[in-house]
Every structure is written in C-alpha cells, then in structure tokens.
Simulated assay, not measured.
Amino acid sequence: MVKLTLYGLDASPPVRAVKLTLAALNLPYEYVNVNIVAREQLSSAYLEKNPQHTVPTLEDDGHFIWDSHAIIAYLVSKYADTDSLYPKDLLQRAVVDQRMHFESGVVFANGIRSIIKPVVFFGQSKMPKERYDAIIEIYDFVETFLKGQDYIAGNQMTIADFSLVSSVASLEAFVDLDVVKYPRISGWIKRLEQLPYYEEANGKGARQLVAIVKQTNFTFET
C-alpha cells in the first residue's frame, strides 16, 4: 500500500503543483501543514527530512524528496499507469523539462519569490519597476509557448502544466492577467480549471496567496 506524506502549505505554488499531480494520479496521501511564519521549517525535526528547509517535501516510505519538479517527475515515473503526464519520448520530455526549468528559474524566481520575500517577510512597501516588467515578460513568454497548442508543452496535459499553472495563477497577486492581451493564457487556465480536482489542489491556495500579498498594499515604483 502506498504511504505518502506531503509537507507544505496551500499558499505555496510549488506545493500546489505537487497536489495537482497527486490528484491526477489519484494517490492517497497525508498532508502536513508547515507554518513557515512560525518557522516550523527550521525545526530540527523538519531539517532532518529536508536540510534545505523548503516546501514541499514528500515522504515516500521513509524516503524524503524536495523540490516540486523532482517530486512530480518522481511521482509520475513511479506511480502513473501511462507516460502521458511525463512522456518517455525524449523530444517530448525535453519540452516538458524545459517548461519546468522555466517555471523554477524564471516564473518562480523572478516573478514570485523576488517579490514575496521582501514584501511579505520584510515589509517592503515599494518594489522596483523591473519586478513589474519581469512579470509582464513572463506573461509574454507563456502566451508564446501556448501558440497553436492547448497545453504548455503540447496538445496533451503534462506535469509541466501543473508546475506552470500553480505559479502563473499566483502572479495575479502582483499584476492582473490582461485576458484581452493574453487570451491563450486565459483559455489555458480555464481549461485546467475544468479538472475535478483543480479547485481543491490549486484554486483555493492561489487565492490565499493573492489575499496575503494584497493585504500588504505594496506598489511598484514608476
């Protein structure tokens, strides 16, 4: 019997990417909330599981894996009945991997973490315009990636969609998505919202993050 435990919090986009994957695979798991404001991730018990003290962390039969991209690739590789979510074809897989690297290195690093850390944790009230420009650039890239296809890495849903939508849906905490300028992104998000597990796995957590950030009333410099 599968024994999985996911450590995280719903407001975290990477945690939500894992929740989407677990739901798509219909895998049961225990969910342990990690209160990062109370610095539970720095407890000795958590550091034994993940010395990098990040969320999410997945426990599978006493083994610990962190980084959402590593986790979702692992889950599909081990537990999926087919390779549709993470194709074995090397060219198709390379596109999926590229999109996930784009999420980690550009969307999350430049678009989310670079604002969340100073605004939410250090109370910074103004952010440089370059941070705004970085989010617009992300939207532009994602809109381009979706040209001529329904999903972020092609015409079938993959774990790259779970990774990207968890972060792209969270960007509205900083810059609202212009549905006229970005119709492909809007359509893609709506397509994923039709998944029976989307709201529980990603929708409510994305709204939590948006609410947390909006409460700070931060602004971008002009």
Rank of each mutant, 00 (worst) to 15 (best):
G123F: 11
I138T: 00
L42K: 12
I159T: 00
A38M: 15
I65N: 05
I152C: 04
K3N: 12
Q156L: 03
F145N: 00
F220C: 08
A134L: 01
L20G: 10
L209V: 10
S163W: 04
G205Q: 03
E40W: 13
D161Q: 01
K214I: 01
N217D: 15
P118L: 12
H101V: 11
N50E: 13
F108P: 06
P51D: 14
V210W: 03
Y198K: 02
S170L: 00
D97V: 11
L85C: 01
N33T: 15
F145C: 02
R184T: 07
V32E: 08
L177I: 07
L58R: 07
A94T: 08
I112C: 04
Y79R: 04
A80W: 07
P128R: 04
V106W: 13
T219P: 09
D83I: 01
N50K: 14
A211W: 09
L58Y: 11
M157R: 12
V18I: 03
L91V: 13
S12C: 01
P196A: 00
L25R: 10
G187S: 08
I65E: 04
Q124N: 03
Q156M: 05
N35K: 14
E48Y: 14
N35S: 13
V213R: 07
A169F: 05
I36E: 10
P196Q: 02
I115F: 05
I115E: 10
N26M: 04
A94P: 06
L42H: 12
R184E: 09
R99Y: 02
Q208F: 09
L6H: 10
Y198E: 02
W188I: 09
A70K: 10
L177H: 07
T144Y: 03
I136G: 03
E199L: 12
A109V: 01
T54V: 14
P183T: 08
L209W: 07
A173I: 04
I185Y: 03
E200F: 07
S84Y: 01
S68N: 13
K147Y: 07
Q124I: 12
K78E: 11
G203K: 12
D67A: 02
L4M: 08
N155V: 09
S43G: 15
K129S: 14
S125Y: 00
A206W: 03
P118R: 06
H69V: 10
H101R: 14
G105V: 02
D140Y: 00
Y29V: 12
F141C: 06
P196V: 03
D161N: 00
A23S: 15
S125T: 14
K49G: 11
V95E: 09
R207F: 04
K126M: 07
S44I: 03
L58G: 14
K19R: 15
N110L: 05
D81K: 13
Y139T: 05
F121V: 11
N217Q: 14
Y197L: 03
L9H: 13
M157Y: 02
N26P: 05
Q194M: 09
A153L: 00
W66K: 08
G111K: 01
I185A: 08
G105L: 03
V95G: 06
R93A: 09
Y198A: 02
V213E: 13
N33S: 15
